[in-house]
């Protein structure tokens, strides 16, 4: 897809632990991946798997417990305030909750203009022009600039959030479940908008999602997370055609297909039980408590993420 083979973002052995009353919550435990310029990595997993924590740690909202985050050749973890401000111009984030992610006391114009104000990019008339331009870009009207967030629908609010992130012309965007709170029909609008922006501006995305359906359309590569670890990672064609990890298979099988005949015939893999608590997770392979192929070794050894075929990584003892 991209001629530039250099990774824009490289995450090496990232760890983020939270010290809570019940013990240590290993939200992200030794996660590594890289995203090439102009590409999209989809990061998928269920609630509590650490996908959002990964995103927030990369962007600097959390300090990593261990590991390295390298953006365009430079280490960006443990930045000073000025360093973070500089990094902010290049990397931005889109948030999940279209209701909580916009300040209810600010007009849409001021919300979108916030980045412009912070980095003192434009003032006065130019600033307003830029805000109008951004509203156009995400498919909203100019009149919307004077309105307040509560006057908009969920999809429109998410567009405002995208315009806010785009205002300072970043190269890299982390989209933290930008569509999971939206109706299916609106989800497609947002995914398409993000894809258009990517093509126009050559953006690089980390797209976080809780199921595998929409991710497929926007991602070049997909990584599946379970309890703080990546269990499978490959390109988005291979993952859907040939899922290897039992958890990925279950995730794929769980998404209902909008076709009653197919749906009635289909044999679903239904996972037993719930995701265990990330505080004191199961020993060895963390998925073993819900895995029908679990073996003795799964209890004793944590499988490492290894390449089983060209560019297809799996962390599972079935493939070692």
């Amino acid at each position: 897809m991209s001629s530039n083979d250099k990774a824009l973002l490289e995450v090496k052995n990232l760890k983020k632990y939270f010290y809570v009353s019940g013990g240590v919550l290993k939200a992200v435990d030794d996660v590594s991946f890289a995203i090439k310029k102009g590409q999209t990595l989809g990061l998928v997993g269920e609630s509590g798997c650490g996908k959002s924590t990964t995103g927030r740690t990369i962007i600097g909202l959390y300090e990593p417990t261990g590991g390295e985050i390298i953006f365009d050749g430079e280490k960006v973890n443990h930045l000073t305030y000025d360093g973070r401000k500089k990094f902010a111009r290049r990397a931005q984030m889109i948030f999940q909750d279209p209701y909580a992610s916009l300040n209810p006391r600010m007009t849409v114009g001021d919300i979108i203009g916030e980045g412009i104000d912070i980095h003192e990019l434009y003032t006065g008339k130019e600033r307003m022009e830029r805000i109008y331009e951004l509203l156009d870009m995400v498919g909203l009207n100019r009149e919307h600039a004077n309105r307040f967030p509560h006057e908009f629908s969920g999809g429109q609010r998410q567009r405002i959030g995208i315009a806010r992130a785009m205002a300072i012309e970043p190269e890299f965007i982390i989209a933290d479940e930008p569509i999971s709170a939206l109706d299916v029909s609106i989800q497609a609008q947002i995914v398409n908008l993000l894809m258009n922006l990517q093509q126009e501006k050559g953006l690089t995305y980390l797209f976080i999602a809780h199921d595998l359906s929409m991710v497929r359309h926007i991602s070049d590569n997909v990584a599946v997370m379970y309890l703080g670890m990546i269990v499978e990672m490959t390109n988005s064609v291979e993952l859907y055609a040939n899922p290897l990890h039992p958890y990925t298979q279950a995730l794929l099988s769980a998404v209902p297909i909008p076709d009653p005949k197919v749906e009635k015939k289909r044999e679903r893999i239904i996972l037993e039980g719930d995701v265990p608590s990330p505080i004191n997770p199961p020993s060895g392979c963390r998925f073993r408590t819900r895995c029908k192929y679990a073996m003795d070794i799964c209890k004793e050894q944590t499988p490492s993420l290894r390449e089983v075929s060209n560019g297809h990584f799996v962390a599972c003892h079935l493939f070692s």
Partner: peptide, 26 residues
């Protein structure tokens, strides 16, 4: 912990700005 405050932080807002523009008005 609200996302609009996190968004401001991500944009590079200073603590003073976050307190005055986002926290106090709400």
């Amino acid at each position: 912990e609200q996302e609009f405050v996190l968004a401001a932080k991500t944009l590079g807002a200073s603590p003073g700005r976050i307190i005055m523009k986002h926290l106090i008005p709400n």
